[in-house]
């Protein structure tokens, strides 16, 4: 009885634990019962870090697992994938394998050929895989995250190096000198602009002058042309002789005028001598007046005489007025 109890308990424990382990494993492996997966194959030149059991993803949905990876002739690698039953495949499907996480997990993505990201290497791989046997999809491996981060790391290192060099070269002194250079350049630029403006104005003026000069030259050329034409016609019609005759006449007239002018000059010299004598006499008179000599000198220099004269003039003016108003008072005409 005791032994039966032991058997039963041990057996039950073993079965329960085994069932628990099996179900836990299947649950974690996301195994699906009652569904028959479809097998698909894709061929690659290289499959990167893909391993058996990695997810097969269609439009972001895990739709299967990588079942097998095997080397094939002519440097190909074949990946067999189990795709869930009833999964709709994209049009013109291709398989891209890429790292799914930063922790080394990879996945196979089934997507349409048109949706493949633009990448020369991927295009080359897909083009190479174009002649895949019937039923096998074309495959390519996308750049590994590690490769990308390595490249990015290299770029970051270069940028840091350049930044360090710039920081070393561009110290406070360099910054001050650069500021000063920019200021100087600004002044230089302003001066240059002014000079250019002035030179431009000068050039405008010069051009205008030149334009006028050219116009004058053109006019002169026209006049010369006309003159030459006239000369040409004059020599043929006797007008030159007439011009010369008139010139001779004009010269004679000019000579006569010159003679008259010389005579006039002589008269002027005589008048000047007379005028100088008159001025000398007037000067003598004015000097005597200033000294108070003579009647005029007395009149000019003696205020009382002036006032008397003025008073006399006033009286005289009054007398005249009175005479005009009543002449009979002063004139007595008697006939008989």
């Amino acid at each position: 009885m005791k032994r039966r109890s032991n058997d039963w308990i041990v057996g039950a424990t073993i079965i329960v634990v085994m069932v628990g382990i099996v179900f836990s494993t299947l649950f974690l492996q996301q195994a699906e019962f009652g569904k028959k997966p479809e097998l698909m194959t894709a061929r690659f030149r290289d499959v990167g870090g893909v391993q058996v059991g990695n997810a097969v993803v269609i439009r972001g949905v895990v739709s299967g697992r990588v079942k097998q990876i095997a080397l094939a002739p002519n440097d190909w690698v074949l990946i067999s994938m189990e795709i869930n039953e009833g999964t709709l495949m994209p049009t013109d499907p291709v398989v891209l394998v890429q790292a799914a996480t930063l922790f080394g997990e990879w996945q196979a993505i089934i997507t349409s050929r048109a949706a493949v990201p633009v990448n020369r290497e991927v295009e080359t791989q897909l083009a190479e895989a174009d002649g895949a046997p019937a039923g096998a999809l074309r495959g390519a491996v996308l750049p590994d995250i590690a490769q990308l981060t390595t490249v990015a790391g290299g770029i970051a290192g270069n940028v840091a190096s350049v930044s360090e060099r710039v920081r070393t070269a561009f110290n406070d002194t360099a910054a001050r000198e650069l500021r000063r250079s920019i200021r100087d350049f600004s002044v230089l630029s302003r001066d240059l602009a002014t000079a250019v403006k002035v030179q431009s104005r000068n050039l405008d003026s010069l051009a205008a002058t030149a334009r006028l000069s050219f116009a004058d030259v053109a006019t002169s050329a026209n006049a010369l042309q006309r003159t030459m034409a006239r000369v040409d016609s004059a020599t043929s019609q006797g007008e030159v002789q007439e011009i010369l005759r008139q010139s001779r006449q004009a010269s004679q007239n000019l000579r006569n005028a010159t003679e008259r002018f010389e005579s006039l000059s002589r008269s002027l010299v005589s008048a000047e001598a007379n005028l100088r004598g008159a001025i000398g006499k007037a000067d003598t008179i004015l000097a005597r007046v200033e000294r108070g000599e003579g009647s005029l000198g007395l009149l000019v220099n003696d205020p009382s005489l002036y006032r008397n004269s003025d008073s006399l003039l006033v009286d005289l003016r009054r007398l005249v007025v009175d005479f005009r108003s009543d002449p009979k008072k002063y004139i007595n005409v008697r006939i008989f």
């Binding site: 041990v10 424990t13 073993i14 634990v17 085994m18 628990g20 382990i21 836990s24």
Partner: peptide, 16 residues
């Protein structure tokens, strides 16, 4: 040999 894995299997299940 038989029961250690059973105990450990149960421990795995419970630990998870």
């Amino acid at each position: 040999v038989l029961m250690f894995p059973i105990v450990v299997g149960a421990a795995m299940f419970v630990g998870l």
